[in-house]
């Protein structure tokens, strides 16, 4: 009982520290010129460098989903467009937004946490503080802004890569007729679903950047603690993404 209360107090303290850090982060940058320089650098480092992995995973998942649906629901009673329709809905509603962000939480989140954690233990953050610079704003704000900008673009890329993967199974695997897949992909298309994926991804981007930055920024100790912070950031942001996915799906589509 006592341990539970202690854990609860610890969790509340962590939330409090996160809010205080975000309060420091969302302040006016010292120099807008430096902020934009850093912002562009983060877009490249966190976003552009992730395009390859996003396209690769999405392409193969799109292809695998098509094959699985085709094999598992094949029946004379099922319309032939079903495969394309289901593939589209999975890619649009869940895979390209939520699952892709879970993958990015691993890649980008650990990158942010370990970068900031190393800066903390090598006193680079203290050096910024001594110079009279707000380190949270200087280091974290460009990362959040960059990720919130680039992740919706990555989600859009993912949707297209998944659809190309689905077509690849028709063109190269001969799984089904490409025209049937195309018909299914266009059948009862709801534009709002695309927006749902993009809106969800904005929240997920904020979760990945801010939670990972929090774990990295508040590291105390040495390299083992940096590694632990990196793992904790991935686990926590993944759990929060799943929870936010549930809430946002209910709000946007319920």
């Amino acid at each position: 009982m006592q341990t539970n209360i202690r854990d609860m107090i610890k969790a509340l303290k962590t939330v409090g520290r996160y809010i205080i850090l975000m309060n420091r982060t969302f302040s006016r940058p010292e120099r807008m010129r430096m902020f934009f320089k850093q912002y562009i650098k983060e877009i490249e480092q966190l976003g552009i460098n992730s395009i390859g992995i996003v396209l690769l995973i999405s392409f193969f998942i799109g292809a695998v989903i098509t094959i699985q649906i085709k094999l598992n629901i094949e029946s004379p009673w099922m319309p032939r467009w079903t495969v394309g329709y289901v593939t589209r809905e999975i890619m649009l509603l869940e895979f390209s937004s939520s699952i892709m962000c879970l993958i990015l939480a691993g890649k980008v989140g650990s990158n942010i946490a370990s970068e900031l954690g190393t800066m903390r233990i090598t006193q680079q953050i203290d050096a910024l503080e001594i110079m009279g610079i707000n380190p949270a704003c200087h280091l974290i704000l460009p990362k959040i802004a960059a990720l919130v900008t680039i992740i919706p673009i990555l989600v859009t890329f993912s949707i297209f890569a998944g659809i190309i993967g689905a077509f690849a199974t028709c063109w190269f695997g001969g799984i089904m007729m490409a025209s049937d897949l195309e018909y299914g992909l266009q059948y009862m298309f709801v534009e709002w679903f695309v927006w749902c994926g993009i809106i969800k991804s904005l929240f997920f981007a904020f979760i990945i950047a801010s939670v990972s930055a929090f774990f990295g920024y508040t590291v105390e100790g040495g390299s083992i603690e940096v590694g632990k912070a990196s793992t904790d950031s991935v686990v926590t942001s993944s759990v929060l993404i799943l929870f936010a996915d549930l809430v946002l799906t209910k709000l946007l589509m319920g």
Binding site: T122, Q123, Q124, D126, A127, E129, G132
Partner: peptide, 12 residues
């Protein structure tokens, strides 16, 4: 703080 300079143990 702009009038301060600091050299850290790890150079930072």
């Amino acid at each position: 703080r702009r009038e301060m300079g600091m050299i850290f143990q790890s150079a930072a």
